[in-house]
Simulated scan of single mutants.
Amino acid sequence: MKVITKIADLQREVAAVKGVGGKVGLVPTMGALHNGHLQLVKRCVSENDCCIVSVFVNPTQFNDKNDLLHYPRSLENDCKLLESVGCCIAFAPAVEEMYPEEDTRVFNLGKVAEVMEGKYRPGHFNGVAQIVSKLFYAATPDRAYFGEKDFQQIAVIRSMAKLIDSPVEIIDCPIVREEDGMALSSRNARLTPEQRKNAVNISATLFKSRNFASGHSVTETLNYVVDTVNAVPGLEVEYYEIVDGNTLLPVSDWNESDFIVGCITVYCGEVRLIDNIAYRR
């Protein structure tokens, strides 16, 4: 596996692969890799001739400087993990390489970027669009892989790809969970043992809510999830919304859509955790 830090070097490697008709896959990450990332990488490896994994903590998508400062970084270990699953190239640029000057682009991403995370983290998705578009331009992948834990982010990236007329195929992959059901996240590393024990109640409540929903309204189900999670010591729901899986707009009735997803964000101490679950799909 090659570790590359410069865009020009990455482009030379990609050109060599494409010059012989090879397909290139990209897995954008912010590092601190776990098994959820590795499942994306394994799929990318299996479906392409060259798998590129970017490892870059993108400053423009953090609206909380403290969150950026404390985001876990472990490049050496990340590279070992990537090599173990067949990654061809780890692209680990410096901030100055990706942003030689301020990126002032503003993407009109539509309603999918205005609700939920868009409402609570203003500017976040524009930063995501900035960095992912830069990665698409740099790596010119045929396919790009994203995990469904960041459900809203995938919709935003699809919107961004349309705006820049990108031919990249966006591939979404199922959430990878711990044995106890908790969604894998780099942020989990920041939890104390006690917090980790409490945090599993987020996914447990979502799973239980699917049975609850079969006999209750959307509003009753929403209140059930919020009240149950908030009753756990140290957990505080920032939002829980039950939405159409395509438009991300709230639904008020289970028959409104064939694709309905519940999306939650919970603070566990200072650590912000997200998860989601499909009610209809």
Rank of each mutant, 00 (worst) to 15 (best):
G19W: 05
D49H: 10
L206M: 13
K18F: 11
C173L: 08
R105K: 13
I175R: 08
N201M: 07
H34A: 02
R105W: 07
V112I: 14
R187D: 07
T5S: 08
E270T: 12
V132M: 00
Y224M: 11
T219A: 15
D275F: 04
I242N: 04
Y240S: 03
F91A: 01
R143S: 14
S74D: 15
I154H: 08
E114H: 11
K80F: 12
T60F: 02
I175D: 12
L81Q: 14
N255E: 15
N201F: 14
F107A: 05
E83G: 12
G245C: 03
R73Y: 00
S84D: 10
T140W: 12
L81W: 10
R281V: 14
F107I: 03
V106S: 07
N126T: 10
L69M: 13
N246F: 09
M30C: 07
F107H: 01
P72L: 05
L10M: 14
I157H: 00
Y120I: 06
L109P: 05
V24C: 03
R210Q: 15
G25V: 02
V200C: 06
I274E: 03
V53D: 09
D172P: 15
I264P: 01
S186M: 09
F151D: 03
P72T: 10
V45N: 09
E179Y: 08
K65D: 15
E13W: 04
M1D: 14
D142L: 06
T247M: 09
Q11I: 08
V243Y: 03
L184V: 01
V225R: 00
N108W: 10
D227I: 07
V168F: 00
G127S: 10
T265C: 14
N188M: 02
N48E: 08
S186D: 07
E148A: 05
E236P: 10
V45A: 06
F107N: 02
E148C: 11
F151L: 02
H124Q: 06
D142G: 13
K18Q: 15
A16M: 13
P28S: 09
A113K: 02
E97K: 00
F259W: 04
I7Q: 10
C50M: 11
F107D: 04
V57I: 15
N211Y: 12
S257M: 02
M182C: 04
E114D: 13
S46V: 10
H70R: 09
D9W: 01
I175Y: 09
L235E: 11
V132W: 03
V156M: 01
K18G: 03
T205Q: 12
A213G: 01
F259A: 04
F56C: 05
L249G: 02
V115Q: 08
K80E: 13
V95L: 00
D275P: 07
M30H: 15
N63R: 11
